[in-house]
Design a protein around this nucleic acid. Sequence first.
DNA 1: CTGAAAGCGCTTACAG
DNA 2: CTGAAAGCGCTTACAG
Lengths: 347, 347
Amino acid sequence: MAIKRRVTIKDVAARSEVSNQTVSRVLNNRPDVSEETRQRVWQVIEDLNYQPSAIARSLIHQRSLTLGVVTAGLKFLGPSQTLNGIAKQAEEAGYTLLLKELPGFHTTDIQPLLNTLLSRHVEGIIWAVPEIGNNRDWIQHQPNGLSVPMIFLTMQTQPGISIVTVDDCFGGRLATEHLLNQGYSHIGHLSGPLDWWEARQRQEGWQAALLDAGLQVLEHHWTCGNWSTASGATETERLLESYPEMDALFVGNDQMALGALHVARRKGIRVPDDLAIVGFDGIPESAYYCPPLTTVSQNMGELGSAAVKELIQAIEAGHHDHAAYEPKLLSIRPELIVRESSTAVRV
Amino acid sequence: MAIKRRVTIKDVAARSEVSNQTVSRVLNNRPDVSEETRQRVWQVIEDLNYQPSAIARSLIHQRSLTLGVVTAGLKFLGPSQTLNGIAKQAEEAGYTLLLKELPGFHTTDIQPLLNTLLSRHVEGIIWAVPEIGNNRDWIQHQPNGLSVPMIFLTMQTQPGISIVTVDDCFGGRLATEHLLNQGYSHIGHLSGPLDWWEARQRQEGWQAALLDAGLQVLEHHWTCGNWSTASGATETERLLESYPEMDALFVGNDQMALGALHVARRKGIRVPDDLAIVGFDGIPESAYYCPPLTTVSQNMGELGSAAVKELIQAIEAGHHDHAAYEPKLLSIRPELIVRESSTAVRV
DNA sequence: CTGAAAGCGCTTACAG
DNA sequence: CTGAAAGCGCTTACAG
């Protein structure tokens, strides 16, 4: 497969015996070309299978129609669903995506990555990396802000920053209130790792609901795992010991909930009669867990597409430079899906 | 966020009172600049936070250091794991990814998509869309081949095409032979949709193993689902009726296997004593199914990174245009993970 | 209706 | 050691 030179506008011009700019006119459907010339040039374009260079064009137009996406942990469900939504929406809006995946969640030096993206003239950036520990502190240290609009996904509100997020706290509340309504009163919580903002929010929702119901929230009523099914299993065991009265458990994601179900089964604990379990995420398989899992469903695809819409709006506001774009906070509400794992017939 | 003009090489040149090409020399670490000038220019570059335009550079160098990735069904596990591997490897090799997701698996007109990619000067393309029905016929109709190297993932061998694939047929054989070794002899199969090449391969492996063992393979010994847990459940029910002697079941993916387990449980069929079940994919949760699932594990991340390595090799071969790059076929072997769902103590 | 000129942001020979 | 000129592939005024 030897190197093939690109077919350029010059090749087309030469072959159709006109100047470059006439070819350019034909390409861009300008009116001022004679019908005869137009036909001839199109013919040559097709014969040569000529594709105008988007690169050259973006240099002139100062527009690349490209969006940068920074993601991490693509092998997990959430991030890939989000990317799915981003890709769909970008496609629809006529933008192309430049994808960068962080090697881990805790990358320290963001600058080279941002530079790569900016050097390729992205018109905006979507930051689809979960907020963990202080992995967003760099935002403060940006010299004089970014040179392009940027949208952050699922994170703590910060002034001056556009954020699209799922309301995880509300989700945690939803799960817990459901359990209360079902008559459970010793409701434990198995959270995700607490350096994750999402994990903390869900935990907060759980706690708030219990306090609102006049119940106590004590240290030994909860523990945290690392999102994996394995950790869901081991942490559930720990919780069963530290909180023996526990009759219901709100778990921070469906995969850990699967681990919890696993442990309950091994120990002969009946779900939901002895222990109700509610998950978070709403992954399709959860409907086929044993028993089917009640869960809080969040639409990550919608999150992604909302982010793209918002970003494009910001970009266009920048072009009509009058209307300075106001940073926005969009929050998507998760929904409760009730299944067998939390609906015992209580007496 | 009003529009900000990019800082260009001219700005730097003006501010440091040298010509553009001296700035260029400094940027590219050329030797022939006086130390004093070099220092001054670097200072200005930093002050202005100047980022050279990769776009302009790629125009000159005729190299974009960009790879195109075409994917579909990112919301499913396989494609996103694959993309994960692709992203990691591309990053490591210093390439940036241009991502396009097809709206569905059966897109008819590939040309516009290919053109977008080519117009942005991608140096190579990875086709990470599963082969389904005739959704790859377009390869034949490419006028005079592609102008850049292209690698296809998981598909039927075709002359002149570079392919990186998992050996699904071998995987199916692995699962089936394991069941035979465990003493099962009425082994049914629940495949994925048969227009998927991968589904057909796994089915073929199952069939070959049975024939090799001198067993019959009849129509009513297998059925096909659509990869979803739901279809896994309904198709297992169907199979239990059509093939009542069945004592083991090889299922085309883990999610459908979860559906099979679900049905078995509902019907009081003991797994693995009455019915052994083996899945395919090796997703982490399968270790926590009820009972834990024996499965054939395939490393999609490795698939992705192998594809990137191969593609880059092809690209570089193109640059040293002597050594014409030979299309290759790389095949990755899946592995069997044995768990409780297939290891009854048989008498 | 069509072409010569200038320029997008950069680099590569070529002079001096 | 440094700058003027030409060019990557294209488009946009400006002439004619």
